[in-house]
Design a protein around this nucleic acid. Sequence first.
DNA 1: CATGAATGAGTATTCATTCAT
DNA 2: AATGAATGAATACTCATTCAT
Lengths: 218, 218, 218, 218
Amino acid sequence: MNVANSKQTAAPAHSGLENYRRRVSATKRRSILDAARDEFQHNGFTRAAMAEIARKADVSTATLYKHFNSKEELFSAVITEAYERIEETDANLGEQGTVEEVITKAANNILSAQFDQGLNALMRAVIAEVSGQPEIGREFFERGVIQRQQAVAKILDKLVQRGLLKQHDTEISAQEVSGMLRESLIWPALFDPSFRLPKDKDKLIAEAVATLVARYGK
Amino acid sequence: MNVANSKQTAAPAHSGLENYRRRVSATKRRSILDAARDEFQHNGFTRAAMAEIARKADVSTATLYKHFNSKEELFSAVITEAYERIEETDANLGEQGTVEEVITKAANNILSAQFDQGLNALMRAVIAEVSGQPEIGREFFERGVIQRQQAVAKILDKLVQRGLLKQHDTEISAQEVSGMLRESLIWPALFDPSFRLPKDKDKLIAEAVATLVARYGK
Amino acid sequence: MNVANSKQTAAPAHSGLENYRRRVSATKRRSILDAARDEFQHNGFTRAAMAEIARKADVSTATLYKHFNSKEELFSAVITEAYERIEETDANLGEQGTVEEVITKAANNILSAQFDQGLNALMRAVIAEVSGQPEIGREFFERGVIQRQQAVAKILDKLVQRGLLKQHDTEISAQEVSGMLRESLIWPALFDPSFRLPKDKDKLIAEAVATLVARYGK
Amino acid sequence: MNVANSKQTAAPAHSGLENYRRRVSATKRRSILDAARDEFQHNGFTRAAMAEIARKADVSTATLYKHFNSKEELFSAVITEAYERIEETDANLGEQGTVEEVITKAANNILSAQFDQGLNALMRAVIAEVSGQPEIGREFFERGVIQRQQAVAKILDKLVQRGLLKQHDTEISAQEVSGMLRESLIWPALFDPSFRLPKDKDKLIAEAVATLVARYGK
DNA sequence: CATGAATGAGTATTCATTCAT
DNA sequence: AATGAATGAATACTCATTCAT
């Protein structure tokens, strides 16, 4: 089920005019999504106002509703786009470097996406909407959380292959290391919008790696 | 003057009238808190309606406001109460039993509060309000997260004292074990209201303990 | 409680007890009226709150309603009492002194009542209630304004008798001199609660007297 | 709609659509102001209800708030408009006619505004709000009282210039004549909503003029 | 296709008055 | 007689969504 299934633009006929229109439409859609993301990040779902999103996107509310049938749908589209961005990371991590180097790199990749791109704020917005739109929450979890853990598991697999860690269930170890880091570096951000990454974050990462290695190292 | 006097001298500390009123008042307060918890759990803070809470509690809105000056105050009272219930539990944990027994017990205490008493839903409600009212989030974090970790650290301290774990910074290990468990057992509940504790939760706890012991065991 | 109370006051026959009760009741009525006047002066009729009046008077709201059936009735009582105070002034003014001396004295009497006893604020409250309770407005005008003009007319009559002014319709001249003074000294207070009597008020009075004398002097 | 048309309608400053909207908007604003004036005159500021004003104006409350950001702003607009209507009247008064003719004319201008256009009721509404919102009172006083007196002073200046009155401080004489007339013709209306201009009002005006002339005439 | 004015249902909070003890 | 908790009706203001042009 794709909850982000918003209105599709009309079937393509290739006149110059229609191309122009499609271009204009795409531009507006783009600016609406940007404005919406901004609003949702700053105000959460409920307090974000459609009128304000329209204003920021420089379109009328009616145009906004031409592109997205409802506030929920718009939110869903913003979220979908957000985890599309997430999925682009850590392609071939783990193939070289020590365990600590690899995991530190992976952790920093995730953390920078989380903090610099405003994912924390979006995550709060999603959680806020869980009771109203459970599918969004589940989909976000599936794509934004599980997939990421699987990516971490893959990295750990590579470390196992390279003989740096012993054979074990990397799904569990991935959860464990993710959890240890999330606890101190992401969890606080859920409750405090002004929370920033602490200066000693690399030390915290090193500690988690040490614990991981104590259990799974060779 | 005379009247005030008679009130002080003649009236016993707890007249029948005052007792009656106190009783009624306490009853109403109780039903308001129950109704409010229910509403906040189901609808979050913003969408919960004071009128509906009053209806569920079978009082007028004005009575509701006699007991709690604002929606925020009511919400805060609900949260506070939820935590008071927990804090009574793991009082003298850690003084006997193996590491695994102790931590399994502590974990189950926390988990039952989260799931059986609806704390997950309240947590979502709090997170939903963070962008609009940051104080609520910070207060909850202080009480619900930090204090909890300190409780875990104290338990670990006892295990160290008993010689079951080696000397180490228990603040960090408390974070680590909390994080490992939260990752698989609480984090999903944030995004999926129908998430229930998995059947193999004790195995997950055991894994986390094993990792902890690998690093900090003697 | 009530029993202990009556034992203390030792009421053998009903006369003593009733006296006591009447005294208490009168005291309460007095403090209610004082509190109400204060509230109405500061907040006007609509914004004045019965609960606050009760609090200031140190009685319960129920007691308050035992004495006055409604907010309107209480207001009416406050106003009635206010112009009873007004009517007590300028008994035998005009029998000696120059025209200017006499009128300056009379004017200052009125002005001090108006400003020092908070009549301006009560006047605003009355005017505010005119659309809701026209009788109060009319009665206040009758007793507070007309009677005062008649008092002024009497004073002018005495001046005529003493040969300081020529024969004329003193009802009209009383209106004229009242109006001239009210214009600059009372009218502004209707619109500005912080308005205070100007330092040159005696000059303004002198001007009005000069105009009066120009027309009606001998 | 054809291609050329749609391109054109995107750009022009005053399309038919905009004209239409301007027209509709102006109409609604007009009916809102009328409804609001009516409500404020009958119920005063506090008791007037925005919902009722909207109903009378045949618009939704939201539309009402599109035009005026708050109840205060709407009230202020009503007051301002009431005064704009008056200020257009006595433009070049005083350039011809006798003293009595000129002042009678000016007085009648003011009186018709007060009585026929319901300014008395608005004035009561303003006074009612003075204790709660002093700015409203001061603004009204500035516009409604001070400006009016200055207008009268200007008229008197012209009479001085024409040699009908002797040189004097017309600010004071303006206050005097205003006060004399207000006393008998406007002051009663503050306290009695059913007060109507008396039949002998022209005689009262004549008396005031006579007094004025006695002091300041040549 | 784009507009933005208009909608109406919804919300937190207040207050004069009553009622059970 | 006195209390003060409880009431319920009332109010200003907001916002997602629609509609006439």
